[in-house]
């Protein structure tokens, strides 16, 4: 317990978390602080390229093994299955309609790449290595949850899910996935030599850019919380904290079962525990327009994202250390 509190304490006063807190507080206090859309998108492109490239370099150094295939399959299956669990919990814990519950469930089956990046940053800070291909697992886990959510809506007979070929193409060729996977392959092909050539760009400024990006995330989360006051009940907020804990435990079991390293297990827990707030909301606006965006965005970005960032990641690390004995 002392170890968990110490980890959480150190995490809470890191520049990354404090930047997020600054954005959150500034938005709640109605400050006019904003990050221009183009800057935010530029930072997002930088972070995705950097994390993808570094993952590819790590794979080129350590090679491909059976665990990689198992991790990819596990990620795919988890992304399909976690929304079913989330939907069940939501129906028990909240009074949300089937459509709103399915839309929220899709977010919790998909992933937050920023939470993943923050977790890799925490692991690097503690000199804990992880499997580079976890980046590919993250990419695989982006979209399947959306299909599960649409199936849940169709099964409940409570509404019409709008699923066209254009949406499937948008999901699979979503810009984040293309960049992440593309950078991963560039890193895997060019290896250490390629990394040496551009490390000054993708390594040294990484944490600083992540701080500014999280400042922006804090601003968006704060604005969302301010505007959605009264939209969410205690049951929904409870779900947004309970679901990541349950999902992380499933990720822990799966990660340990397929033989991931300590860092890999933590990242699998984080991927399972995190909720999307970029790719899935856009897909939900197309496929389930009747679902209330204030509900799913506030839960994923306003509650689960800060929870994972501040307490979740150190907690998952401590639990993984205790379970794996590493």
């Amino acid at each position: 317990m002392t170890e968990i509190l110490s980890l959480a304490g150190a995490n809470l006063i890191s520049p990354i978390i404090l930047s997020f807190a600054l954005g959150l507080l500034a938005a709640l206090a109605r400050s006019d602080l904003t990050i221009p859309e183009a800057v935010a998108k530029g930072m997002s492109i930088y972070l995705l390229f950097s994390i993808g490239f570094k993952g590819g370099v790590a794979v080129s150094a350590h090679g491909i093994d059976q665990t990689l295939v198992l991790a990819l399959i596990a990620g795919l299956v988890l992304s399909f299955v976690l929304p079913l669990l989330a939907f069940g919990l939501l129906r028990v814990m909240t009074g949300l309609s089937a459509i709103d519950a399915a839309a929220v469930a899709a977010h919790y089956g998909s992933i937050s790449i920023v939470t993943f990046v923050a977790a890799t940053s925490v692991l690097n800070g503690r000199m804990i290595s992880s499997e580079g291909y976890m980046v590919a697992v993250a990419a695989v886990m982006e979209a399947p949850a959306i299909l599960s959510a649409l199936w849940l809506v169709a099964r409940s007979g409570s509404g019409e899910a709008r699923m066209d070929p254009g949406l499937i193409r948008e999901l699979l060729l979503n810009g984040s996935i293309v960049l992440l996977v593309g950078a991963f392959f560039i890193g895997a092909i060019t290896g250490e030599k390629g990394f040496a050539e551009i490390s000054a760009f993708i390594e040294a400024p990484f944490k600083g850019v992540l701080c500014l990006f999280l400042l922006d995330m804090g601003l968006i989360a704060g604005r969302g919380l301010r505007q959605s006051r009264g939209v969410l009940g205690m049951g929904a907020v409870g779900f947004a904290i309970a679901m990541p804990l349950v999902s992380a435990m499933i990720g822990l079991g799966i990660g340990a079962l397929i033989g991931l390293s300590l860092g890999g297990v933590v990242l699998m827990m984080v991927l399972c525990a995190s909720a999307s707030y970029i790719a899935v909301p856009a897909a939900m606006r197309v496929a389930l327009p009747e679902a209330n965006p204030a509900v799913y965005l506030t839960l994923s970005l306003g509650v689960t994202f800060p929870f994972n960032l501040t307490l979740g990641i150190p907690l998952y690390l401590a639990i993984a250390q205790a379970v794996t004995g590493a």
């Binding site: 904003t34 990050i35 221009p36 859309e37 935010a40 998108k41 997002s44 984040s176 922006d216 601003l219 968006i220 604005r223 505007q227 959605s228 707030y277 970029i278 790719a279 909301p281 856009a282 965006p293 204030a294």
Partner: peptide, 14 residues
């Protein structure tokens, strides 16, 4: 009717 929204800081197609 659906509340306030802003383009500032948005990353996805929001």
């Amino acid at each position: 009717r659906s509340g306030q929204w802003s383009r500032d800081g948005q990353v996805g197609r929001a």
